[in-house]
Write a protein that binds this DNA or RNA. Structure first.
Length: 478
RNA sequence: GGCGCGUUCGUCUAGUGGCCUAGGACACCGCCCUCUCAAGGCGGAGAUCGCGGGUUCGAAUCCCGCACGCGCUACCA
């Protein structure tokens, strides 16, 4: 049997980092076993749909490198992959369940149900459907149906007994039917609820492994019951631990960004996000921490997924992202950094020059948006010498000697100055004057930028070029 | 409230009865490297393994109870 997994988000907004991890684990597991990964859109709650969310979801998944084999905009043998386009299928099976006696029509109004719930809570009872319509006679049902009363369909939960199922991550889980409600599976608007839709689709789409968030664990028995009622083969289940806020509540907005998009917009690299998120709840069993997507596919296994929730620690994400920034291809990194510089109004017309800037400051960045905090020395034309160390060094007699020597060497130099010949040049000055270390390099740094701290000198020099360097140094000779 | 699932340094985690005086990583601190700031290298501090009972020669690892946290308890997913 081939392995088939799916990621089934609701198009209610942006892709959540928790959702990305669920998608990733499903993808990794499928690919590890040479199976298929399917994207399915669960839009059965028409009131919560956000326009553009599907495109956004697909785009973000693509950005992360998680490619699905079947899904919306792509097709596949078991489509359509959007639930609102499969309504008749769910209705058919809901009716089938009624006919078989595993479900029944319910004519209770939302108002009545709400009132009932309130009263149950007030009298400290367990909020639960009271079974009014389950006890309706055949005739009464026919009559109400004929009158066209608004109706839903509820699945029957056995009145006693319990159900044990095996979860690939948690082991055997047992739930007593007494704690389960006769769940509505088809709403009055004709749309199915999650519980019906998920079972029908997973069946028809031949899903072999249902890998989803822990919040679904308590309702899994309902799904298993449905498989049994419909006489379908059950998939395997694996319930992932939750991603949490620093205060251990379920990861949510307010306490930082949760949309993958937000991280993308700040200049986090997809490989860093994927690597980081993969390690939230899973580890390879040894001390390696850096994994490319194909390495994750190779290493991944559900057996090594943790049971406890994991706090989303932005500091560790930042560290991991900075690692990837340091090691990224420089052309690519420059392309990614340009929008941030442009937005700040910096001139980015000369790609080669921007590249030098990116190379010079990349070790300072946790994410690309921070680049604008480190590049002012490359763009200011007005050099002001800061107080303190910078002023002191310029006053040194040796500094003037360095300037004079350096300007002369520049004039003698064939072609432009670059990081290599700059180092050579400085070595010569050191040999000729005996000035070295701080006294040799600092004056140039300060004359060029006005500051005692900043990016690597060889790169600054290469960036500015002969003419500009000469202008800036000459200021201090007389 | 009921039910379910969890609980190892602040955080992510290794650990499946003796290798654990509990290992690694982030963050933090120090040293080295270095023209500076970073990066990098080296080192330090940091966990009586939620608590209490067992089982065993021996328990973070097995069993029981409790506590705490989270999730679910919708015509939301």
């Amino acid at each position: 049997m081939s392995i088939r997994t799916r990621f089934a988000p609701s198009p209610t907004g942006f892709l959540h980092v928790g959702g990305l991890r669920t998608a990733l684990y499903n993808y990794l597991f499928a690919k590890k076993h040479h199976g298929q990964f399917i994207l399915r859109i669960e839009d059965t709650d028409q009131t919560r749909i956000v326009p553009g969310a599907i495109e956004n979801l697909i785009d973000t998944l693509h950005w992360a490198g998680i490619e699905f084999d079947e899904g919306p905009n792509k097709g596949g043998p078991y489509g359509p992959y959007i639930q609102s386009q499969r309504i008749e299928l769910y209705q058919k099976h809901a009716r089938e369940l009624v006919e078989k006696g595993y479900a029944y029509y319910c004519f209770c109004s939302p108002e009545r149900l709400e009132k009932m719930r309130e009263e149950q809570i007030k009298s400290k009872q367990q909020p639960r459907y009271d079974g009014t319509c389950r006890r309706l006679s055949q005739e009464e049902v026919e009559k109400k149906l004929a009158k066209g009363e608004p109706k839903t369909i509820r699945m029957k939960i056995p009145e006693w007994g319990e159900l044990t199922f095996h979860d690939l991550i948690r082991g055997d889980v047992t739930i007593n039917f007494k704690t389960l409600d006769d769940q509505i599976i088809l709403k009055s608007d004709g749309f199915p609820t999650y519980h019906l839709a998920v079972v029908v689709d997973d069946h028809y789409m031949k899903i072999s492994h249902v890998i989803r968030g822990e919040e679904w664990l308590p309702s899994t028995p309902k799904h298993i019951l449905l498989y049994e009622y419909l006489n379908w083969e059950k998939p395997q289940f694996a319930h992932l631990p939750l991603l949490l806020n620093p205060d251990r509540t379920k990861l949510s907005k307010r306490q930082g960004d949760v949309a993958v998009e937000d991280y993308r917009a700040k200049g986090y690299l997809p490989e860093a996000i994927v690597n980081f998120i993969a390690l939230l709840g899973w580890n390879p069993g040894d001390e390696r921490e850096f994994f490319k997507l194909d390495e994750l596919i190779n290493e991944f296994s559900l057996e090594r997924v943790n049971k406890a929730g994991a706090i989303f620690d932005i500091k560790k994400l930042n560290w991991m992202n900075s690692h990837y920034i340091k090691n990224a291809d420089l052309d690519r990194l420059t392309q990614l950094a340009i929008p941030f510089l442009k937005e700040k109004g910096y001139d980015v017309a000369n790609f080669q020059k921007v590249k030098i800037i990116v190379e010079a400051v990349r070790t300072h960045l946790e994410y690309l948006a921070q680049i604008v905090d480190h590049v002012d020395v490359f763009f200011t034309e007005t050099i002001e010498i800061e107080n303190g160390e910078a002023q002191e060094i310029l006053k040194l007699d040796s500094s003037k000697i360095v300037f004079e020597k350096f300007i002369r060497k520049l004039q003698e130099l064939d072609g432009e100055i670059n990081r290599e010949n700059f180092k050579q040049l400085m070595k010569e000055i050191q040999n000729e004057t005996g000035i070295k270390g701080k006294n040799l390099f600092m004056p140039i740094r300060i004359a060029l930028t006005g500051k005692a701290h900043g990016p690597e000198l060889p790169l600054l020099v290469e960036y500015f070029g002969k003419e500009k360097i000469k202008q800036r140094l000459e200021r201090f000779i007389n």
